[in-house]
Design a protein around this nucleic acid. Structure first.
Length: 304
DNA sequence: TCACTAATAT
DNA sequence: TATATTAGTG
């Protein structure tokens, strides 16, 4: 009987060693394939009628993980505290991992600004939730920790030439005096665009105009790419005339699914990059040349 | 309370 | 440098 016990104990310690061995051999979070990465190409998926799972955000994943952990705790089914520790630290690693916002398709040299969005061709923005999802999620309980807050952070707006052109047209229409963030935002009719976005851009635009008026040059490529419409102070705008067509809010055209891109099913215009278009789509602004725009009746989600 | 703007932070 | 956020103000 004792022998049996000893052998059992040995067996147990062997098991523990093996578990430890196994644990040390586990990949770190940075070694793992990002959750946002799809293992099969869209062509393959389509060929075999495979529908993509609903897109999982860090929030979803963390919530699921927390559920799993609490279930395990509840049932206490042979899950040692060490195991918990490992899992918890893994979770923390995932949480502090800057990867969710921007994923490098190619090797990343020196970029350490974890939330900066680089528009370089080599980068693809992958898993930022839609504004609606983020906002509703914000109302959910249990989301007060930094990790969740970070996952929900509204993506940084990139003012593409198209978007800026639209902006300039609206400002020109209003006249610089009447061009205030809220009005601009409404006339621009861009889904997801906030007053804050516009205010910030307007601030920069005014500085640009000031420079130009003072006869100074500006090497701002974005602003230089758009002709200066009559948006100077002496121009009061055509505010009483209807602004030319923004029949529907602008939304990002359907994704082209580049390698490592987003699943078709999860895309909703704002999901992974608010406005910037793929390069080949640029230059199709505005009016009825929105491209594949989803009709929409409201003006903007930010109407108050 | 809301919106605007300038200043400041990231 | 571009954009977001904050603080002061009307």
């Amino acid at each position: 009987m004792d022998e049996e016990l000893v052998s059992k104990n040995n067996c147990h310690s062997n098991d523990e060693e093996r578990v430890q061995e196994w644990e040390t051999g586990l990949p770190t979070s940075s070694d793992l394939t990002p959750l946002s990465h799809y293992l099969i190409s869209p062509e393959l998926a389509s060929a075999f009628s495979i529908t993509a799972e609903p897109f999982q955000t860090m929030l979803d994943v963390n919530r699921a993980s927390q559920n799993t952990l609490s279930n395990l705790r509840k049932h206490n089914s042979g899950f040692s505290s060490n195991n918990f520790k490992s899992l918890s630290s893994f979770m923390e690693d995932r949480c502090s991992d800057p990867e969710p916002i921007v994923v490098d398709v190619e090797e990343d040299d020196d970029d350490d600004e974890d939330e900066d969005v680089d528009l370089g061709d080599k980068r693809k923005i992958q898993n930022v939730e839609s504004i609606e999802e983020a906002d509703s999620a914000l109302r959910m309980d249990n989301l007060n920790d930094d990790c969740s807050a970070r996952a929900l952070k509204r993506p940084r707006l990139v003012w593409t030439p198209q978007l800026h052109k639209r902006f300039v047209e609206v400002v020109a229409h209003l006249g610089i005096d009447n061009a205030v963030p809220k009005t601009i935002m409404q006339l621009m009719n861009v889904e997801g665009l906030t007053r804050e976005n516009v205010a910030s851009h307007l601030q920069k635009y005014r500085l640009y105009l000031k420079r130009i008026n003072e006869g100074k040059s500006s090497n701002d490529q974005l602003f230089a790419s758009t002709p200066i419409l009559p948006s100077l102070p002496e121009f009061s705008g055509n505010i009483h005339q209807p602004f030319p067509p923004a029949p529907v809010p602008y939304r990002e055209p359907a994704p082209q699914m580049p390698s490592g891109g987003m699943p078709v099913g999860s895309y909703s215009g704002f999901d992974y990059h608010p406005y910037s278009m793929h390069r080949e789509h640029q230059g199709n602004w505005p009016g009825n040349r929105f491209g594949s725009v989803v009709p929409h009746s409201h003006v903007t989600p930010n109407d108050k």
